[in-house]
Design a protein around this nucleic acid. Structure first.
Lengths: 238, 238
DNA sequence: GTCTATACACAGATAGAC
DNA sequence: GTCTATCTGTGTATAGAC
């Protein structure tokens, strides 16, 4: 799959998060009109993401958030009871949406080789589409409460487990080599994460997500596929 | 090389940082006695690292630092003119020491295959020995001033360039495949970073640094070495 | 629903005693 | 060299007008 195709297959995650937050927290929010809530939640999350990436969530003050979102301090506190809650809700709702899309698209494939390719691609495409959210989530997870941080860690491990299971399945079916599945999954995960953690670096070098996906698939396949035929990878023009 | 051997070949980095800071900043520090300075710098950096990893540098207050290090607020400010300066000095001195060791050990090797292995191992061993510093450095780099952040980024790119050059050299000599050297170096770097970014995860699974080094070398070699003989990697006992 | 004004706590930093 | 006491700014959060 190419990134362009992927974009057509999934809904607008930004809207989805806001709608889910509305449904889940409507009794805690002091405002009643759905339209108003959604509109302002979008503003709040958008600005949180922008400032949060720029200088970190801790360094963002509620006054920053207020002035940049054009909502008064008072208004902000009718949506969230504390600054901490903004972070908690934003990260946890994002995680839900992501794991939903990831699992759904992987399950469509049946063969291990195709499953692995899909897992890699969908993960990269998701992080491409929501790259600010992913970067923010990675950097700020440590500022969550212990329970919420545990949720974030588990969510990451879940993705890794998905990959590990694909590798195990492929090993059983004889298409993948007898490797350490757990370690291999970890390392593949690290490659996937590098895409959103070092996004700026790859942009500067004109590497787009399709190019990166193709490259790491060739890297991964050289290790996991049984009796690999060595494919030389074309040198990118500098 | 094994991690145990490595430990004997390098000096104590903690002491080194403090001595270098003393030499470089002796005129800015309000204290005169070298012994006192070194002793207190060690305390300050040690506590900064501990609290900084625990809850982030921004969240650490000077009062935290004061009470945990048993130095009064006033004393702290006779060593550093601001909280920000502690971060700046600690990170920049650390970078100097690390790049020094890395370059020195890589240059001892002459053949590309051995050079690559050494680069991977030394990087892993360094991050193992100073893993708190590396984690802290990674997480707090964004809180530096623009100029200092640029230095941090350049320092990372320098490591990557070292690896890239080894790959290019090996390609010329016919021992490495014709791959995209720049992308390959990036991905290898990502694997190396995962070791200190996810240290806790690997500890839980009883993966030590020697084991990790061996694994990612087999992963990397399957991709970069010309006409690879597929080595199956032994399954680790769970 | 949204605003302004303000309470209150706590941060970084310094002055000056010892 | 090190301490305590204190200044001043700024942070989160709320009360109550509109």
């Amino acid at each position: 799959m190419k990134y362009d195709e992927f974009l057509h297959t999934i809904p607008d995650s930004r809207m989805d998060i806001c709608r889910n937050v509305f449904l889940e927290y409507r009794d805690k929010i002091k405002i009643k009109k759905e339209k108003t809530i959604i509109k302002n939640l979008e503003k709040i999350f958008k600005v949180t993401l922008r400032i949060g990436i720029d200088k970190g969530f801790q360094a963002m003050t509620m006054r920053d958030l207020s002035s940049t979102s054009n909502l008064s301090m008072g208004a902000l506190y009718s949506y969230f009871s504390s600054k901490e809650e903004i972070l908690r809700v934003f990260l946890s709702e994002g995680r839900k949406i992501i794991s939903q899309i990831l699992v759904e698209l992987i399950e469509k494939e049946k063969e291990p080789v195709a499953k692995l390719k899909t897992a890699v691609e969908v993960h990269l495409f998701l992080t491409e589409k929501m790259h600010k959210w992913f970067y923010f989530s990675y950097m700020e997870a440590k500022n969550l409460s212990p329970e919420e941080r545990e949720n974030a860690v588990q969510s990451e491990l879940y993705t890794e487990k998905l990959i590990e299971n694909i590798l195990i399945d492929g090993d059983k079916k004889g298409v993948f080599a007898k490797i350490d599945h757990s370690l291999a999954a970890s390392v593949i995960k690290a490659m996937l994460q590098d895409w959103y953690l070092k996004r700026g670096k790859y942009s500067k070098r004109n590497i787009d997500v399709d190019h990166y996906a193709e490259f790491i698939m060739s890297f991964i396949n050289s290790f996991v596929i049984v009796q690999p035929v060595k494919k030389s990878y074309p040198q990118s023009p500098v």
